[in-house]
Amino acid sequence: MNEFLEFIDNNLQITYILILAIFVGVEVIKSIPAVLHTPLMSGANALSGVVIVGAILVMLHADPTDYVALSLGFIAVVLGVLNVVGGFAVTDRMLQMFKRKK
């Protein structure tokens, strides 16, 4: 418990950002028409691909001779990019379909 409180105290800025971001996420999504549920889920999925930034950082910080880190990082970047590019592309196609229906 003490360590938890200490963590909050040491990372006060991050804690504030974290809490405010939770509220922003909730507010942004309020009252969405049901037809947009699936595209929105897909768009949010593409956004969660932001983890790719971490995967790139792993690669940038890796020792060129550390083959384990390099290969894991490489796979992480490929998977992250798949999530991002595939996610946004699929969302775009869903929304095209939605437009035609209208």
């Binding site: 971001a21 996420g25 999504i29 932001v50």
Partner: peptide, 12 residues
């Protein structure tokens, strides 16, 4: 990453 991830987390 922090804000993007939390956005997806709470909106999701």
């Amino acid at each position: 990453m922090l804000v993007g991830g939390i956005l997806v987390g709470s909106a999701g």
